[in-house]
Amino acid sequence: MEVSIKDIIKPENLVYQKSSLLTEKPMHYCPGCTHGVVNRLIAEVIEELGLQQETIGVTPVGCSVLLYNYIDIDWQEAAHGRAPALGTAIKRLLPEKYVFTYQGDGDLAAIGTAETIHACNRGENILMVFINNGIYGMTGGQMAPTTLEGMAASTCPFGRDPERDGNPLSMTEIVATLPGTRYVTRQAAHTAGAVRKLKKALIKGFNNQKENKGTSFIEVVSTCNSGWKMTPVQANEWMVENMFPFYPLGDIKDK
């Protein structure tokens, strides 16, 4: 007997649906943007851990500036690069709460370098999520601190030249050397497998806060297909081929 789609689409057969912590507001990100996946995973993790009332998120300046429109928790919007300073104070004043920051590469690894390094070095008991797509998406595709050598951006249209522009910055390896960090990992979200791994990492980043043993830091190597001027699928392929060799995936530190 053939089973019809109608037979399958029944509440008892439901295996995946949108998190109830995601609001009805459509995300403003471009089609295929990694931000959407990571935003969604954060909502899922907070919902599954039952932490809606216990969590305060800090949003950055950049494409994810309006992230607070999408997840139904309390939020603070930081000035460009300052999210770790906000996170530090929120956690110190409300130590029983779960605090996370969400920042892009320009925010976390350029203008906010000092705040990033010092929050990690103090071992602030927070989770820092770092979206690295090697470009400034919001402002229209300029060179980021993490732009690869030779990679084109609107402020290095002929490719990043280390002699002129300096070298791409591996912030995640840097923070892993600091005694204050507890869990440092680099993940991606381009395949279902990568997404499932990233979700596990995020769960760990939240759960680690119960033990107050230092900062959890999760980099997500991401695409910016609009900025890279590719289709979403091409951008994923380009990322695997070009970004992963320089930004290899995996746990760097877990203590």
Binding site: A78, T88, A89, L93, E115
Partner: peptide, 15 residues
């Protein structure tokens, strides 16, 4: 830095 301290103030004030 003073930049960090005023932003810590922002975080605390927001709570």
């Amino acid at each position: 830095s003073e930049i960090a301290s005023i932003n810590m103030v922002y975080g605390g004030a927001g709570c």
